[in-house]
Each structure stands twice: as structure tokens, then as C-alpha cells.
Design a protein around this nucleic acid. Structure first.
Lengths: 363, 363
DNA sequence: TATGATATTGTGTGCGTACACACAAAAATT
DNA sequence: AATTTTTGTGTGTACGCACACAATATCATA
């Protein structure tokens, strides 16, 4: 393994010069720089990350901005992945704080602005679920030259500070849901899509899911599909009432695509109505949905790998700071189809994205 | 972050003594050892891996034993994952060589014995597809105290040197295939299982897949299922002949579970026979199967995450050597259901298990 | 030619750990 | 009592790199 010292010898200069070339610190004569770069090339030099992070005196601190978790699920999978990645990076000079905000209230995200930009952070990892406010934050990043990575939701923008997006491909998840339901029903049966969220228009991912769903069905001869929003999405009785109405109107309905993790409520409802012949596709491996998998045979969950989103999001910043490598491409994580038969493996993976990250001998 | 030096100060000893305690090198008075351990506890000391691997003069070398790849797919996904993991570990003192063997011929695996045990390797990562010979190798590991990790196939054994298994859960994949097919057919339709491999009995994973498949169907009222082995699995004409025969015998057959990656041959056959109404479930994201996804609508692939198997297998050895942490539990990777709609994400992931492992600035 | 300014290059130190070695004190042996 | 041996402990160096600083070369100007 070639070291800086070897490069220096090869190029006939000192390690200091090589260092300046590697880090573009300037003050190097052009022909010398060329010689050094050739030496680097010829010897196939790759910096030793262990040594590099050891030699760096200062940590890189990043602010992680996430929506608050609901009480009953305090450690969201997203957070888990982030914490694990941070844990594995801490020996290599990357540290992060999680700043959470209430995404149901306006203005809560922007309240974090001061903390984020008070000088203690070098980068931002953000789940921009609240489009407007998140955009403001990212603009501020641009103007102050602070790199940022988006996870979970994506707001298209092209600034120099952007380090891209790591997250799900909602459009494809819509297609996937359509394919599954299409596969599971018989000729002549009808399909439907159900939004269970308050503010659908302002949630990019819901809009995209619907678009993907429509796209698939249009290309596969389903022209009479039902698209609906539940007005009340928490109260089981009201849900039952609405669903019952829907089923009476649409006797041929045999498959429903629920665009959020609330699908377990529909499982419960349909079981009460004795209509568990209806195939369901919903989202996310959460407690209630896992339970639903046990009770409801025709249920598939699409898992968006939340913990990997967090994990790779952090890793992108790791690459940026520790490897001098800035990835900006979109990284779409796999969409997993989860059933009772494979849910255990997925749970396991969510617990431990990387065994290398596990607590070590002195934990 | 507490360092060894801090522990030493706290315990009133020198760093050398702390080092001896941490690594159980002996020559430490009992009461001193206790004091040091307390200090470690109180300060929450965690070794700095960067410094550790930098200070270690010697690399840990591991032998990776894999079946040869076929010509047209030289870099198996398995190998990819392993190479990536090795690449990311090389700065941290873990190196490995891949030793491959022809698993179609008897005795080929054992020919590697001398190379493995010639003293250049400290550990073994093995895909024990050939049960008998692999067992012999692992026994040798036990008697020489060399740790080993199994990937891909699992041979149950309990020796002190075993670092467990990282791989698929074949039984569950059989259940999963059954569930999918069951979901996709109508009442009264028939299902079947097709082995496309020469030596089914000696392939644990095929036996397990069949068992899982049977299990699911038995519990869901399918009592007339067809189980079959193709005698010729390479020649398309002969396959067509056999399949044609099968379909004539079983007019109600509407779904087939293919236990190997050769499912694309069945797709082709069924298309020629104009019978693409038959739902198919097969294994693995290989070129031919990806193509098949485009041509054959009712096809699902089960992905066993081969590259993650390799990745985590190596990481286990990383933990063992660099973190003094030995995991021995079985790690079953997620079984992904892959369709045309989500295959791109999976391909992407196979290309880059971890962006942290990507080639860096001087590649 | 001397002087200073600037551009370029070299040197030294420390990051946290592992490990070889030196050394002192205590114990065992003569 | 003198010696060897054992046991316990501390010290110093190196790993590869980043960075501060020292040193030297180059050049324009007086």
C-alpha cells in the first residue's frame, strides 16, 4: 500500500508538497504538481482513512433534522439508521445531533434555524417533509455554503451545496402496489386507491404514489379504478362507515392500495365487515401492521427501508468529509414487498443494518 | 471521548497497564486490574478503531472459499459484496483472498486445503455448498482453532471456532413463493414446484425450499400440488417437451415455483407455448431473469441478497478481529420480492451495498 | 549587490493505540 | 545472603496522515 511518503519519494519532493497537492492547498509549482499527481496515479495511492481521521484534530459536526416521532414509536426506524451510522462514524471524525420538530404545526421547522446555523454544524441532513419551510432552510444552506442531504422526501433543487437525495421512489412504489393487486385479483374485479392522510396535496410522496399507481393500471387495462380520500383517518367507527359505503357502491372492488402506514386500520375494518377477501397493499413495517399481517391473509406491505435511508444519508456526509467525495445522485432504496412469510427477516435487518455497527466490547 | 491515557490517569497506572488489561495480556495485579476495569466502566471507554487499526502492524488475512462462477457471470453478486466489504476494511487491517473451486466436481474443494492452512490465513469465510468436503474443512478449522463464517449455505455445527451463518432462509423463501402464487391464482387452480438442478438431494437449500413451499400450501388448503424435477435443465427443446407434457397432464396448473435461478428458461418456454397465464416465482436477480421480467408479466423473483451475504460475512470477521467481538448467531437476510417495478432499485443496491465502500478520490 | 517580498518546499509534532522493551520489586532458589 | 526467576509496571516508538511552522528558492526593486 503506497503511502504519502512513497509518493513523495517517487516524485522527488517532500510529504508536505504531496499533502498540498492532495488537498489542493495551493503553493505548488505547476510542474511539481504534475509530477506528484503522476506518482499518485502510478502507485495507485489511496489515503488511509484510519490515519486520516486520526490525524484530523477536529470532528465534523452535522445537524440531523427530522420530524418528531409519535409517542408510541419514539425511535422511528429512520432515527435508528441514523444513530447507527453516526455510531460507526464517530471514530472517524463525524458527529451529529438530532434536532426534531413537530411537522404537524406550521413554523416549527423554522424555529430550528438558529440552532442549525449557530456555527456548531458543518452540514445538514434533513427530511424535508414540510416543503415550504424546508426549502427556506436549504436556501440558507446554499447561501452559507453548507452541504446538505435530503432523506425520505425529495425537493428537487440544484444548488452547489446539495448532496442529493437518499430515499424511496414513491412513483415506483405506486406501480408496484398496482402490480401486486392486479396480480391478485380476477378478471373483471375492480381496484381502488385510498389516501389516509390529512394534507395529500402537500405531500409529494402521496401524489407520486398515486401517479405511479395510475400509470400501471392505465397500461394494463384497468380503466375503472376508484380513487378516494378518507376524511377521517383515526376514528375506527367513522372509517368503517366510509368503507362500508364504498363497498356498497362498488361491489366488484377486490383490491385496495393504501398510500400510508394506516393500512392496519383498513384490515381491522374489513375483518369486522367480513370482507377479508379484499386484497390490500399498504406501507411500512410498523407494529400495528405486523400484527395485521398475522390477522389478514391478503395483505402486503411495501417497506421503504427507512433505516437504510438514514444510514446512507449519514454515509454520504461521511464520504463528503472523510473521503473528499461528493455524491449528488439520487439514491433510491429498494422497495421491499413484505408479507407474514418474510417480515421477520426485515425486522431483523431494521434492528441491525450493519453488524459492524453493533455496540462493541466495552458497551 | 475517553482515551487509554485517561483511563490510566483515572486508575493511577500507566497506559501500558491499561493496555494489558484491555487485551488480557496478563501480568497485572488483581487489584490493579479491578481498578482499571472500573475506570473503563466509569469513563465509558470505547477503543478508537481508527487508532487501533493504525497501530496494529499486521493485517488479518482471511481465506474466502467460493464456488467458481460460470463464465458468463464471472463476478457473482456474492463476490461483489465480499470484495466491497474487503475494500472498505483494508484500511483497518483486514485482507482477504478469494479461493474458488469447481463445485461440480468431487474433491475440488479439498484441493484448497493446503493453501488455506499454509499459515497465511487467520480465518475462513466459506460457502459450504458441497456438504461433505466443506465439513472436513470446517473440522480442520476447529482442530487448528481457526475461526470461520458460513455464508450462502448452512451446515449446522457447534464448535468453538464457528462464527455462525450469514445467508438466506430457504424454508421461508419456499413459504413466500407459495404465498405469492396462492395470492395470484383463482379458486380451484393448481400449483406446482419445479426443481431445476441436477443433484437436488445434496443441496440443502433446495430441500428446504420445497419443505417451506409444502408447509404453506398444506396450511392453506392446497392438497393437490405437483412436485417435479426436470431431468434436462439446459436444453430448451427438452425443457419445452417436458413442460408441454406437464401442462397436458395438469390442465388446471396456473402457478409454478421454480427453486433456482433457471426460471427464465421456463418463461421462455411458456411464452413459446402461449401459456403466459401461468404465474411464476423463481430466484435471483441475474441478467436472464431481469430480461424475463420484461417479457413475462406474471413473474416474481425472490432475491436472496447475495451481495449482502458476502458483505456481512466479511463484516463478521471484521468484528471478530478489530472489535474483539464474536457474533455466532444466524443472520438471515431479507428475502426480497422483485418485479419489473422494483428491480432497478435492487440492481442499484447490488452495485453499491454501501456508498461508504465506493471507490474514493484516487481510484 | 543587497534587500525585501513572495512563491514554493521541507520538517516536526501529535492524533490513540499496540507492542517491544526496560526496569523495579518481590519471590523463589541457591 | 547472594543469586536467579518471576511478576508487575512504566517508557518509547511506530502506524499514516494533517497541519502548523520553518526554511529555502525566486524574483523584482532599489
Amino acid at each position: 500500500m503506497a503511502r504519502i511518503k512513497d509518493i513523495a519519494a517517487r516524485a522527488g519532493v517532500s510529504v508536505g508538497t504531496v499533502d498540498r497537492v492532495i488537498h489542493s492547498r495551493g503553493s505548488v509549482a505547476k510542474e511539481v504538481e504534475k509530477k506528484v499527481k503522476e506518482a499518485i496515479e502510478e502507485l495507485g495511492y489511496k489515503p488511509n482513512l484510519a490515519a486520516r481521521s486520526l490525524a484530523k484534530r477536529t470532528d465534523h459536526r452535522i445537524a440531523v433534522v427530522l420530524p418528531q416521532h409519535t409517542k408510541d414509536e419514539f425511535w422511528g426506524n429512520q432515527t435508528q439508521g441514523i444513530l447507527r451510522a453516526l455510531d460507526s462514524c464517530k471514530n472517524f471524525g463525524l458527529r451529529g445531533d438530532i434536532l426534531s420538530f413537530n411537522d404537524q404545526k406550521k413554523g416549527e421547522l423554522l424555529k430550528l434555524t438558529d440552532s442549525i446555523f449557530d456555527g456548531s454544524y458543518e452540514a445538514l441532513l434533513i427530511a424535508p417533509t414540510v416543503t415550504g419551510e424546508a426549502t427556506e432552510l436549504m436556501d440558507r444552506c446554499e447561501s452559507s455554503g453548507m452541504p446538505y442531504v435530503q432523506i425520505n422526501s425529495f425537493i428537487e433543487r440544484d444548488g452547489d451545496s446539495s448532496l442529493g437525495y437518499v430515499g424511496q421512489d414513491s412513483y415506483r412504489s405506486g406501480q408496484l402496489g398496482a402490480k401486486l393487486l392486479d396480480f391478485g385479483i380476477s378478471k373483471g374485479d375492480q381496484l381502488g386507491l385510498l389516501h389516509m392522510e390529512y394534507d395529500v396535496e402537500n405531500s409529494n410522496h402521496l401524489v407520486d404514489k398515486e401517479a405511479g399507481f395510475r400509470n400501471y393500471l392505465q397500461h394494463h387495462g384497468h380503466h375503472y379504478t376508484i380513487y378516494k380520500r378518507l376524511s377521517d383517518i383515526d376514528d375506527l367507527k367513522k372509517i368503517r362507515y366510509q368503507i362500508n359505503e364504498l363497498l356498497e357502491e362498488q361491489p366488484k372492488l377486490k383490491g385496495l392500495f393504501i398510500t400510508t402506514s394506516r393500512v392496519h386500520l383498513i384490515c381491522e375494518t374489513l375483518r369486522m365487515l367480513n370482507r377479508d377477501d379484499i386484497a390490500l397493499v399498504g406501507f411500512d413495517i410498523v407494529k400495528e401492521n405486523i400484527r395485521a399481517l398475522h390477522n389478514y391473509k391478503k395483505l402486503f406491505l411495501i417497506n421503504q427501508n427507512p433505516s437504510l435511508q438514514g444510514f446512507y444519508g449519514v454515509m454520504r456526509l461521511f464520504d463528503h468529509f472523510l473521503k473528499n467525495k461528493s455524491v449528488t445522485e439520487t439514491m433510491h432504496l429498494p422497495l421491499d414487498i413484505v408479507t407474514l412469510e418474510n417480515v421477520s427477516n426485515h425486522q431483523y435487518m431494521q434492528d441491525r443494518d450493519n453488524i459492524a455497527l453493533d455496540k462493541n466490547e466495552y458497551d
